[in-house]
């Protein structure tokens, strides 16, 4: 079954307007859509991230589902404990980690790996804005090559970790990438993950206008261009089998880069280099798509 806009409109979701999120926040957009698919029978565990602040200050909260804030490295472990407790109580509840990229690919990777290896029945979501945005734009293990951050003032020199593939290597039943520029694809991946038992992982490309210095109104467009330029391919790995879920006509990477000041000042050679990396990744995914099992 494929979700339509009408299906999404039926469910109120767990985000209430008037939060502390920045205008045009991709993480909020992702949560709005995801929570509509997950429904109210869901508990969220959130490590330190922008999303800790987006909830807004005590004693109010912009989130209308049960949500527990936990220390930075610990989200996947805490979610494991929540799930096991509900199991003992005979309750069937969606247990979801909602984490940023720092809390996922850096400080949270150990707990995430442990929970994935144990096959905890939880959904781990990384909304990826490609840097430590809550602390004010410092590079993370998810920051792309050559991107400006406050701790990489002349551009990041290293490749980001390929986190979805790292999780997939744990042979979990479901791993997917998503983008706030492709909300139906995103919604359908949550719909699928919700029904699968075991450890699920969804990694969402999530625009951050203040962190990327992109126009506030272009949150969706930047995230769509990320996919259309093959910078952020959309795929899923279900029981080891990879499928590219969106195969757009390739657009020049330049169109994506030019919308964000974090890539300002790249030389022609650097853009070419990035274009080459993007195509290599895309071709590799096409190759993986042909094999019976990736992992």
């Amino acid at each position: 079954m494929t979700l339509t806009i009408h299906d999404l409109r039926k469910e109120p979701g767990s985000y209430l307007p008037g939060s502390a999120a920045c205008p045009g926040c991709g993480a909020t957009l992702a949560f709005r859509i995801a929570s509509r698919v997950l429904g109210p029978n869901t508990v969220y565990v959130v490590p330190a991230s922008c999303f800790s602040v987006i909830q807004s200050p005590f004693p109010k909260s912009a989130i209308s589902a049960p949500l527990y804030n936990i220390a930075f490295p610990a989200a996947a472990a805490t979610a494991s404990g929540v799930y096991r407790a509900y199991k003992m109580l005979g309750k069937d509840v969606n247990v979801v980690v909602w984490a940023g990229d720092g809390g996922t690919v850096d400080i949270g990777i150990q707990a995430l790996s442990g929970a994935a290896e144990r096959g905890e029945n939880i959904l781990y979501v990384c909304y990826d804005n490609e840097a430590y945005m809550n602390t004010g734009i410092q590079r993370s293990g998810a920051t792309p090559l050559l991107a400006w951050t406050k701790t990489t003032p002349s551009g990041k020199r290293e490749m980001p970790k390929d986190m979805p593939m790292i999780v997939a290597a744990h042979r979990v039943p479901y791993v997917a990438t998503a983008s706030v520029g492709y909300p139906f694809d995103l919604a359908n991946k949550f719909e699928k993950a919700k029904k699968i038992k075991g450890f699920k992982y969804i990694h969402i490309f999530s625009t951050c206008p203040p962190g990327w210095n992109s126009p506030v109104s272009k949150t969706a467009e930047v995230a769509k261009l990320a996919v259309d330029t093959y910078f952020w391919p959309l795929y899923e790995i279900e029981n080891g089998k990879l499928r590219i879920t969106v195969k757009p006509k390739k657009r020049p990477l330049r169109e994506f880069l030019e919308l964000q000041d974090r890539f300002r000042g790249l030389t022609e050679r650097e853009i070419e280099e990035l274009e080459k990396i993007v195509m290599e990744k895309w071709n590799f995914l096409l190759h993986l798509e042909k094999s019976e099992r990736v992992f």
């Binding site: 565990v45 936990i70 490295p73 805490t78 407790a85 109580l89 150990q110 707990a111």
Partner: peptide
């Protein structure tokens, strides 16, 4: 669990539930 940090974090999750 894969560490004591996670042991306590999981105990927290269970107790919170």
């Amino acid at each position: 669990v894969e560490s004591e940090h996670s042991a306590m974090a999981a105990a927290i999750g269970a107790s919170a539930a």
